[in-house]
């Protein structure tokens, strides 16, 4: 189920991203995310979930269609306005992107200084941010002295320096064990409870099932299912998720966002990643 089209929403309207004549990342995705929602973008590598995030950060421009952030069209935003756009969101990359020669405190402080914060502001806010992501006790540690989960918490802390109403996380648990994954998810949930819209691209099915949040499942640059927690149980989410990975019929034919898969003999655009060119093995096989 998608949220209504208002100024408080993030809207992808028939968005197509084409890297070349034959290489598509997204093939006409329509999706609406309401302010304050927590959404998982699920799917295998190369299905277009990262591209959806990149459209919001304006790393990628839509080839066609519209991307609206809180009612503002950002697809055609001039390059000079992109930094201001990014200050409206927090971005958590998959690889943490921490500076190895700087301590935890300095990593967050550096990012704050880069956006023009004074030393006084940095001294006041950094400890507060580190406490918020439960890493204050490791403020003097270097990244290599931290566990994966702790590094990810620093990356999330850094994403909070602008007090963003929107947090985008790309595979935040991709490099973590289940215990640390859950720690990260708890932090994201806490931020969501405080009103931050959280969009997480992941293929961590276990985390998604346990969180019981809205799940947008993607495949081949299309949204193949969109399930809210009130709709279905954890088992049903699993079914939705894995159904899309089988190249079989979509799970919910009556779903408004669901679009039919291209036929086998479809000779149109090819998937973006080479992995997708290999024979696909269903996760439950």
């Amino acid at each position: 189920m998608s949220a209504p089209l208002t100024q408080d929403n993030i809207v992808f309207d028939k968005v197509e991203v084409k890297y070349s004549e034959y290489v598509y990342a997204l093939r006409g995705v329509s999706l609406t995310i309401a302010r304050g929602e927590f959404v998982f973008l699920m799917g295998q590598t190369g299905t277009g979930k990262s591209t959806l995030l990149k459209l919001l950060t304006r790393e990628v421009k839509p080839t066609s269609g519209r991307v609206l952030l809180w009612g503002r069209e950002i697809g055609g935003l001039p390059e000079r306005d992109v930094p201001a756009l990014r200050r409206e969101m927090g971005i958590v990359p998959q690889d943490f992107a921490l500076l190895p020669r700087k301590r935890v405190y300095e990593n967050v402080a550096y990012a704050m200084r880069a956006i023009g914060a004074t030393r006084r502001e940095v001294r006041r806010r950094v400890p507060e941010i580190l406490e918020r992501v439960h890493i204050g006790h490791r403020a003097d540690a270097f990244p290599h002295q931290l566990s994966g989960g702790e590094q990810q918490r620093v990356a999330i802390g850094r994403a909070l320096i602008n007090n963003p109403p929107l947090l985008l996380a790309d595979e935040p648990t991709g490099n973590l064990d289940p215990a640390h994954s859950w720690e990260i998810m708890e932090i994201l949930m806490e931020l969501n409870r405080r009103g931050t819209t959280v969009i997480v691209a992941t293929h961590d099915q276990m985390v998604v099932e346990r969180m019981s949040k809205r799940v947008v499942n993607m495949q081949g640059g299309l949204v193949v299912s969109d399930v809210t927690p009130s709709d279905v149980s954890a088992e049903a989410i699993t079914q939705h998720v894995t159904a899309g990975w089988d190249d079989e019929e979509p799970a919910h034919e009556d779903h408004p966002i669901l679009e039919p898969e291209p036929p086998e003999e479809f000779e149109g655009p090819i998937p973006l990643d080479e992995e997708d060119l290999e024979p696909e093995v269903p996760p439950h096989a």
């Binding site: 930094p83 990014r86 200050r87 550096y110 850094r158 994403a159």
Partner: peptide
């Protein structure tokens, strides 16, 4: 590149 990337992530001006 790491510093440049972080600056871009957090919205530092050009």
């Amino acid at each position: 590149w790491r510093e440049v990337r972080i600056m871009e992530l957090v919205g530092a001006s050009r």
